[in-house]
């Protein structure tokens, strides 16, 4: 059964007689000046937080009944034109690359584009926007593109056709279009495969499970740091970007927002995730 947030919970609760958990309230205060994209910004300390419980993804196969991450600390601020979320969670391993049998850590913020919609990635005609931070993209940016030399330092390959230079033929040597033909995802524009990443957050739109699509306009930014067994990630985005699918949000508004988190080291990716059900976010007046 898919759950859908309903503004009028009351009647349904009375009729069914079930204990529906209180929807959590997230206060997003107004701040002056630049929006903080730094997870270690000291201003975050004064921002009210909620501790959200992680639910197992059991709505779309494959299910994930025992998520590895147990809780997510969530904060949000806005400066009138931008909104930023701070997401903190405990994770024993820092998983920042994709090996053949390992995945990377990630976290995402999801908002309905217009009216309330299905928690399972929206529904046809009622899309959601998602801002998806990925630890491997962060690593690509902070260090260098996670190429074979980084993934498998002892690997040796004599030759790749049409690639000039010498081993290890790092990705920067792959300038020849003939050589690039072997790099399908890269030349076809799949954001995952791009050797030059500018942001660690991918902005996506979805109208139901399996429909997640990278939006043509990418406006979200972010940064994640790992220390003491904990990820601290900021995801930020302007309220208005000019995109027809901008959510109707801004100072003084009240809206829904949901979250998901993945522990790559424990096989979590795609639908194998834990999520935070709809949270009601109050964007305090100011700035606008």
């Amino acid at each position: 059964m898919r759950t859908r947030f309903q503004l009028a919970l009351g009647i349904a609760v009375l009729l069914l007689g079930t204990a529906v958990g209180e929807t959590q309230q997230l206060d997003a205060p107004f701040i002056k000046g630049m929006i903080p994209v730094d997870p270690l910004w000291n201003g975050w300390e004064g921002v009210p937080a909620i501790q959200a419980t992680i639910k197992p993804q059991d709505q779309v196969r494959p299910w994930h009944l025992a998520p590895s991450i147990k809780g997510l600390t969530i904060k949000a601020v806005h400066n009138g034109t931008w909104i930023a979320f701070l997401l903190v969670w405990k994770d024993a391993t820092r998983d920042v690359v994709m090996y053949l049998d390992k995945f990377r850590d990630a976290v995402a913020v999801m908002v309905p584009v217009k009216e309330s919609t299905d928690i399972a990635m929206g529904e046809p005609g009622r899309p959601v926007l998602q801002f998806h931070w990925k630890a491997d993209w962060q690593e690509d940016i902070d260090k260098t593109f996670q190429d074979i030399s980084q993934l498998y330092p002892n690997a040796w390959e004599d030759w790749y056709p049409f690639v000039p230079g010498e081993p290890p033929y790092d990705i920067t040597a792959w300038t020849n279009p003939e050589a690039q033909r072997y790099m399908t995802g890269w030349v076809l524009g799949n954001p995952r495969s791009q050797p030059q990443k500018r942001v660690s957050v991918e902005e996506q739109i979805a109208e139901g499970p399996g429909t997640v699509t990278t939006t043509p306009r990418q406006s979200a930014v972010g940064k994640g740091v790992y220390a003491n067994g904990e990820w601290t990630v900021v995801i930020a985005r302007p309220f208005v970007t000019g995109d027809p699918n901008d959510p109707s949000w801004g100072p003084g508004e009240e809206m829904l927002v949901a979250f998901a988190v993945w522990d790559g080291g424990k096989g979590e990716i795609g639908p194998r995730k834990g999520y935070v059900d709809w949270v009601r976010m109050n964007l305090r007046p100011g700035g606008g």
Binding site: V97, M98, Y99, L100, D136, Q146, D147, I148, L151, I171, M183, T184, G185, W186, N190, R192, S193
Partner: peptide, 10 residues
């Protein structure tokens, strides 16, 4: 098979 550089399956 998974391509760990392009990060997609082939």
């Amino acid at each position: 098979l998974f391509n760990p550089v392009l990060r997609i399956s082939q």
